[in-house]
Amino acid sequence: MATRVEWAERVERWERSGLSAEKFARREGYKPTQLYWWRWKLRADGPAQRLPPPSTEAPRFLPVHVVTEASLVAPEPIEIALPNGRVVRVRPGFDPATLERVLALAAEETSC
């Protein structure tokens, strides 16, 4: 079964030949309807993407520098302002269970 790239090449050769689809297809050994369909399909999908010719060189590896998520953004504390006017500042890496207890205590109306 011919690939999309092969059909793109066939359609291109047909269009350059100046022959009718019937004559070109008969000469090449396939049906004229296939030429018409592939021409329509290739035009509908946009310009063909040509693949570069295969390289005979061995692949080269480039150096890689791994960047952690923490180094992308400077960690800043989170501030939680409670309705009673108290503010709780939470640094990155906090323990969620401890934060829950602290917020419960800070939300109380009694003085700390």
Rank of each mutant, 00 (worst) to 15 (best):
Y30D: 01
T110Y: 12
P47T: 14
T56L: 14
Q34C: 02
R10A: 12
D45A: 15
A58G: 13
E76T: 15
A70M: 05
R101N: 14
L103Y: 04
V64G: 05
L62P: 11
V87H: 00
D95K: 00
P92K: 13
G18L: 05
E100S: 13
V87G: 00
W14A: 00
D45L: 14
L35Y: 03
S111E: 13
V11R: 07
P83K: 11
P83A: 07
T3Q: 08
E28N: 06
R50A: 09
A104I: 03
R26I: 01
R13A: 15
H65V: 15
L51T: 09
G46R: 00
T56C: 06
T98R: 05
P47A: 15
S111D: 10
E108W: 08
A58I: 11
R60V: 14
L35S: 02
L105A: 15
I80H: 01
V5Y: 11
E9G: 13
T110M: 11
T68W: 11
R10I: 15
A104Y: 05
T56W: 10
E6Y: 05
L99S: 02
A81T: 11
P75C: 02
E9L: 13
L72H: 08
E22L: 13
E9C: 10
G46Q: 00
T98S: 09
E28I: 09
R10E: 12
L19P: 00
L62E: 14
P59I: 10
V67W: 09
P53K: 14
F94N: 11
S20W: 06
E9V: 14
A97M: 15
S17T: 08
P63E: 12
P32N: 06
S17Q: 06
Q49G: 13
A70F: 05
F24E: 02
